[in-house]
């Protein structure tokens, strides 16, 4: 998914590590530059449009959904797609389209909350570790190493096992699981930044460590964080859907896409529509965040264009 376009401005980095916090506040030119590059990246724009579509559907769910997502109709169980029920009905006769529309709220909430937990927790730890170095850095990063020794979704699963199944616990579990990844990313960026002259300059004029971290270093870490957050949203959505599929996440009758697949699973040989639509919904949203993340990376850092 590489962008074929290479414009002459692409060679200028939008995030100049030596430029201090300026690119956010006073450099409309750089933001404009970024927007221009972003706009020309077809992948990113399609990703953004898909996300915008999903967000609109989530917001307008009460208006868009043709039926109540919880309303059971025993006379219309497991019906295939029809004019009345575009996506068919499930084993309890509930309208699948309505459930998918309402499910977009759950999915977006899971993604946003769990990534926020990872972002704030991991970001803060990474900032502190990278900025102070030494003992603090070592302690934090060794704990992060241990957290990363759990393969894939297993850490989240163990947490859900402890906290008990449920939607909120899945958000917490997936969020906590993201903390070490964010902390490593931010720490790495901060390590690169803190040797810069603008940090020495800030220190020389008497800025406190807290002020330097939050006003001088943090703004410069935003570009990589933005890219990673988008890609992490995709992973978080997939993981949460997997946990719901395993019966550890959203519980019936919540209209969660992963849980819908889990409940429809027993009936797929007679009613394949029960697997098609919720699965496609998950895939499209994950795809959107992956496309956006890829596109943002290309637009924010053209050096990475082919990597």
């Amino acid at each position: 998914m590489q962008n074929t376009h290479v414009d002459s401005h692409a060679k200028q980095l939008p995030v100049s590590y030596g430029a201090g916090p300026k690119w956010l506040s006073s450099s409309r030119g750089k933001l404009y530059d970024f927007w221009r590059r972003f706009r020309k990246n077809r992948t990113a724009v399609i990703g953004l449009l898909l996300i915008a579509f999903n967000v609109s559907v989530a917001i307008l769910a009460p208006v868009l959904a043709p039926y109540d997502p919880y309303e059971q109709n025993w006379r219309a169980r497991m019906e295939g797609p029809s004019a009345e029920h575009w996506f068919g009905t499930d084993q309890h006769g509930r309208d699948q389209l309505s459930r998918i529309i309402w499910g977009s709220r759950i999915s977006l909430a899971i993604g946003m909350i769990s990534v926020s937990i990872g972002l704030f927790g991991g970001g803060l730890l990474g900032l502190v570790a990278g900025f102070f170095g030494g003992f603090v850095d070592n302690t934090i990063m060794r704990i992060m190493d241990i957290m990363m020794a759990f393969p894939g979704v297993l850490m989240a699963m163990a947490l859900v096992a402890a906290l008990g199944p449920g939607l909120y616990n899945v958000m917490i579990a997936v969020g906590v699981w993201s903390i070490p990844l964010f902390s490593r990313l931010v720490r790495g960026t901060v390590l690169g930044l803190k040797e810069n002259e603008f940090v020495a300059a800030a220190r020389a004029i008497g800025c406190s460590s807290v002020r330097i971290i939050f006003f001088h270093v943090l703004p410069n870490t935003i570009a990589p964080i933005l890219v990673f957050s988008s890609l992490r949203m995709a992973t978080a959505l997939l993981s949460a859907a997997a946990l719901s599929f395993l019966g550890l996440g959203a519980q019936p009758p919540q209209p969660d896409w992963g849980a819908m697949l889990s409940q429809g699973r027993q009936h797929i040989h007679t009613s394949p529509h029960l697997m098609w639509f919720p699965g496609a919904a998950i895939m499209l949203l994950v795809l959107a965040f992956n496309m956006l993340g890829d596109g943002l990376r290309d637009a924010l850092d053209p050096r990475l264009r082919n990597s």
């Binding site: 998914m1 995709a234 859907a241 699965g279 998950i282 895939m283 994950v286 992956n290």
Partner: peptide
């Protein structure tokens, strides 16, 4: 490949 990365394995 992008679809492959985005599709849930259980699906």
């Amino acid at each position: 490949a992008m679809f492959g990365i985005s599709a849930p394995s259980f699906w």
